[in-house]
Computed example of a mutant assay.
Amino acid sequence: MTTALFVIDIQNDLATDPETRIPHAERINTAGQKILSVARAILEAQQGQTPAIFFVQHEEKPEDGPLVRDSEPWKLVFEPHAHAHRERRIPKWTRDTFESNPNLASELKAAGIGEIIAFGIQSECCVESTCSGAIAAGFKVTLLSGAHSTYNSGSKTAEEIEREVEERLRAKGAMVVPWEEAVAAWERNERLSC
């Protein structure tokens, strides 16, 4: 069984713009750099052909929000490497990547992918919905704790929302693993798996 890494909606509007980014954007960007560095090194050593890192990118119509295709807010912080055949961009228009891309689950399964490891922005929106969509499609799902976050909302802090999302996903059968532990395990075993 092959593992796919989903990097969800780490886009300029949410992760780098000082006016609009989430409160813990720096933590997510730092975690993302390390996660991708280790994952890419492992995949390069494996020399496989199956895409294994998927960069999910949300798109909106101008009347719905700032993440308009080809705009600065829409751009990814972490881009797929141009010539890396194991990295792929996936656009989406709904919170659930699998809902936006109805053939994605069958494509991944046909490629031998049975496990999805996810991190990104926003915890209670696209991260949770995509993880739930993956579980519903029959994938083993792991959420990387500490590598997903969101905005503060009402009386709840971003960290409280992160924990609530983790509990809801655990209840659906997902594993929740601190990203540092996952990366250390990948380095020890020389493969992506949680």
Score class of each variant (00 low, 15 high):
193 S>L: 14
23 P>A: 04
75 K>T: 13
44 E>C: 15
184 A>N: 13
80 P>A: 08
121 I>R: 00
163 R>C: 11
5 L>T: 00
180 E>K: 11
77 V>M: 06
115 E>W: 11
135 I>S: 04
80 P>D: 11
161 I>W: 02
20 T>D: 00
83 H>F: 12
181 E>Q: 15
123 S>L: 05
163 R>G: 09
129 S>Y: 10
147 A>H: 08
58 H>N: 12
73 P>C: 09
125 C>S: 14
192 L>R: 01
106 S>W: 14
37 S>N: 13
36 L>T: 01
88 R>D: 09
93 W>A: 10
110 A>W: 10
2 T>R: 15
113 I>S: 00
69 R>F: 14
187 E>F: 12
88 R>K: 09
170 R>C: 08
108 L>R: 01
191 R>E: 12
48 G>V: 08
61 K>W: 13
15 A>Y: 02
60 E>F: 04
109 K>R: 07
90 I>N: 05
176 V>Q: 03
163 R>I: 12
108 L>D: 00
147 A>V: 10
17 D>E: 09
169 L>T: 02
57 Q>N: 10
114 G>A: 11
72 E>K: 15
152 N>C: 07
96 D>C: 04
160 E>N: 04
49 Q>M: 14
124 E>M: 12
164 E>F: 12
181 E>V: 13
44 E>G: 15
107 E>C: 09
111 A>I: 10
169 L>Q: 03
26 E>G: 11
168 R>S: 04
143 L>Q: 04
77 V>D: 01
21 R>G: 03
143 L>E: 02
100 S>P: 06
106 S>Y: 14
31 A>P: 06
90 I>G: 06
175 M>T: 15
115 E>S: 12
149 S>V: 02
167 E>K: 13
128 E>N: 07
60 E>I: 05
169 L>K: 00
151 Y>K: 05
44 E>M: 14
37 S>C: 12
113 I>L: 03
87 E>K: 03
95 R>A: 14
40 R>V: 07
95 R>D: 13
52 A>T: 10
156 K>F: 11
53 I>Y: 02
38 V>S: 04
103 N>S: 15
121 I>W: 01
132 S>I: 09
96 D>S: 09
51 P>I: 00
72 E>P: 13
56 V>G: 08
97 T>R: 06
90 I>F: 07
125 C>P: 08
169 L>A: 04
126 C>S: 08
112 G>H: 07
87 E>T: 05
176 V>D: 04
76 L>T: 07
9 D>C: 05
18 P>T: 11
176 V>K: 06
118 A>N: 02
35 I>W: 00
181 E>K: 15
80 P>T: 10
175 M>L: 15
114 G>N: 07
108 L>T: 03
18 P>K: 08
51 P>E: 00
139 F>N: 00
69 R>N: 13
54 F>D: 02
148 H>M: 01
144 L>R: 01
21 R>W: 01
92 K>V: 06
130 T>R: 01
91 P>G: 09
1 M>Q: 13
58 H>V: 10
36 L>C: 04
126 C>M: 08
